[in-house]
Write a protein that binds this DNA or RNA. Structure first.
Lengths: 331, 331
DNA sequence: CTGTTAGCGCTTTCAC
DNA sequence: GTGAAAGCGCTAACAG
C-alpha cells in the first residue's frame, strides 16, 4: 500500500505538503504542487479514508438500515439519499434481513460506530429490545412501532391511512372488506395499527369488524399473499373489498382475483398501502395510501442532524401524515 | 467520546487488557474481566471501528455501487448480500444516481478506500472513462458494457436473452415486434446488445428489422415507457409483439396496451427482461428473461475475493447465461 | 510557503 | 496474566 509518506519522499517534500496539495487546504507553490501531483500519479496513490476519518473524528457517512432492499424500502432509501446528499454527507444502505438478531447486531453492534449517524427502519425489535440499545451515536428510528421515549422517532399515520382507504371503499359501495395481511389481537406492529384503522372505518360506518376478515400473511411476500387471497376466495367468504396492508400484498391480491375471474373494481375493490411506483402503472392502477417518503426522509434527516449537532437535545417523536391516492382499483 | 483508555483507567488496568477482554483474544483473569466489563457498561463504551480498521488495515466491508436502489438493482443487491454475508463480510449499498460524474466520483474518488472491495454496476461510464480509473482497491465491474481488459468483469448474455425472448414471440405468431427502450446505432450500452439480439431473432426468422420498431426511452422510467408505447399505438404502426428492454418498460407497456383496449397476449404479446418479482404476479404474469441474479452475485463475489487474496491475479471476464421464463403475456 | 511534532483510538510486539 | 512502547496513515497546531 502506498502511503502519503511514500509520495512525500518521492516528491522530496513533507507529508504535510502532500496533504495540503491534495486537500487544497493551504496554498502550495505551483512548482511543488506539480511535483507532488506527479508523484501521486506515478505511484498511483489514493488517500486512506480510514486514517483520515480517524483523524477527523467523523466519517461523513450516514447509514440507513432497512429490513430489505425491496419495494417500500427502495423508495424510502431513494428519498433519504436525496435528502442526505445535499447536506454533504454520503448515504449507505445496509439490510438486516428482517431478523431481530440482525437488527440488534446492526444497532448495538460496533458497526454503527462507522457512521456519523444512523437511520434505522425497525421491524423485528420489540420495545424491550429497543430499550436495551445504548445510544452512543446519533440514531433515528423509523417506522411504525412505538419506541422508547429517549429515541428520536419518525412514524407514519398508519391508522389514519388504513381508515381513509377503508372508508373510501365503503363510500364507494363495499360492505365486506378484507384486512389482508393484518395481524389480529394486540401488538405494536405496523399491521396492528393498520388493522385498527380498518376497524375504525368499519365502525364509523356501522359495519361489523368480523374476525374472519382479518387475514394474516406471514412474511408479506407476493407468494403468500396470493395464496392467502386465493384461499379466501375459494372458502366462499363473501368479499367485495380488499384493504391490503402493503402494495405488494395488494398486487398479489389483484392477481389472485383475476385468476378467479373476479373483476376489479366492479366485483371487488382493492386498496393498498405504500403507493409503490409500479402500482400506478398497473391496469387498473392501484388505489393506495401514499406514505409521504419525502416528508419521512426530510424529518428523519432533520432529526438526525439535530442530534449530531447536539447529542443531548431532547428526543423528538414525529408522525408524518399520509394521503389517499385514488386510482382504478376503486370505483 | 469515551475511549478505551477511559475504560482502562476506570477499571485500573491497561488498554491492552480492555482490548483483550473485548476481543477475547488472550485469556484474562475472571476478576479483571468483570471489572473491565463493569466499566464498559457504566461508561457506555463502544469501540471505535475507524481506529480498529486503521490498525487492522481492513474494514471487513464490501460495497455494491449501483445507479439506483430500484427494481433490477434491488434484486441484484439482495443476491449479492446473500453471497457476501456467509463469507464474513458486510455489504453496504451506495447509489450513484446514474450520472457519469457520480460514478467516476464513486470509483476514482477516495470513498472507495473505505472498503475492502467494491462491486460496481456501471451504466454511465464509457470505455474511455473506465480506462481512467486506477485500481488501487479490488474492484469488480458488473453489467453489460464492455470494459477494459484489466478489470474483473461480470456481464449478462444480453444478446442471447433478447434473441430468446424475441424468437419465442415469433414462434408464437408475432411478426411485428417492437424493441421498446432500445437504442439505435452502435454503442456499448446494455440496450444496444439487447437490440442486436432482437435483430438476430428477426433475421433468423427471415423477418425485417425495421428501424421504426426501435423505440428509445430516455430514462427507462415507467412514465416515459408508457408515453412511448401510447404514442406508438396512436401512430397506427402495426404491432403484434413488444420486446421491452427491461421489465419496468414491459409493465408500463402492458398498462398502455390495456388503456388502448388491446388484449395481451391475444392482440399483442409482451416479453421483458429482468424477471422482476412483481412481474410474476401481474395478471397476466409477465414473460421475461431471468438474468440469473444468484449466478451474477456468486461470480462477482468470487472474482472480488480472488482479487482481494491476490491483487496481481489476471483479470477475468465472465458472461452469465440467462434463461427465458415463459408466462402469461406470451401465448 | 514548508516542515516538525504530536496524537486521533486501537492493537501488535515484546517484555515481565 | 498483564503492561509499555510503537505505530497504523493522516492532519491540526505550531514553528520557521
Amino acid at each position: 500500500m502506498v502511503t502519503m509518506s511514500d509520495v512525500a519522499r518521492a516528491a522530496g517534500v513533507s507529508t504535510m505538503t502532500v496533504s495540503n496539495v491534495l486537500n487544497e487546504r493551504r496554498p502550495v507553490a505551483p512548482a511543488t504542487r506539480e511535483r507532488v501531483l506527479a508523484s501521486v500519479e506515478s505511484l498511483g496513490y489514493e488517500m486512506n479514508q480510514t486514517a483520515r476519518n480517524l483523524r477527523a473524528g467523523r466519517t461523513g457517512t450516514i447509514a440507513l438500515i432497512v429490513p430489505s432492499f425491496f419495494d417500500y424500502y427502495s423508495e424510502l432509501a431513494d428519498a433519504v439519499a436525496r435528502e442526505v446528499e445535499p447536506r454533504g454527507s454520503h448515504l449507505v444502505l445496509e439490510r438486516t434481513a428482517a431478523t431481530a438478531e440482525h437488527e440488534m447486531a446492526s444497532v448495538s453492534g460496533a458497526r454503527l460506530q462507522l457512521y456519523d449517524g444512523v437511520i434505522m427502519s425497525s421491524v423485528g425489535l420489540d420495545r424491550e429490545q429497543l430499550d436495551r440499545i445504548r445510544r452512543p451515536k446519533p440514531i433515528v428510528l423509523l417506522g411504525e412501532r412505538d419506541v422508547p421515549e429517549r429515541f428520536d422517532h419518525v412514524r407514519l399515520a398508519n391508522e389514519d391511512g388504513a381508515r381513509m382507504a377503508t372508508a373510501h371503499m365503503i363510500e364507494r359501495g363495499s360492505r365486506r372488506i378484507l384486512a389482508l395481511g393484518a395481524t389480529p389481537g394486540d401488538g405494536h406492529a405496523m399491521t396492528t395499527d393498520r388493522r385498527v384503522g380498518w376497524e375504525q372505518a368499519l365502525r364509523d360506518a356501522g359495519l361489523p369488524a368480523d374476525e374472519r376478515y382479518v387475514v394474516p400473511i406471514g412474511d408479506y411476500s407476493f407468494e403468500n399473499a396470493r395464496a392467502a387471497m386465493l384461499s379466501i376466495i375459494d372458502s366462499g367468504l363473501p368479499v367485495d373489498g380488499v384493504f391490503a396492508m402493503t402494495d405488494v400484498i395488494a398486487i398479489a391480491a389483484l392477481g389472485a382475483l383475476h385468476e378467479r375471474g373476479l373483476r376489479v373494481p366492479d366485483d371487488v375493490q382493492v386498496a393498498g398501502f405504500d403507493d409503490l411506483k409500479v402500482g400506478r402503472f398497473l391496469p387498473p392502477a392501484l388505489t393506495s395510501i401514499d406514505p409521504g417518503h419525502e416528508a419521512v426522509a426530510r424529518e428523519a434527516v432533520r432529526l438526525l442532524h439535530r442530534r449530531m449537532d447536539d447529542p443531548e437535545v431532547a428526543a423528538e417523536h414525529v408522525s408524518v401524515p399520509v394521503t389517499l391516492s385514488v386510482r382504478g382499483t376503486t370505483r
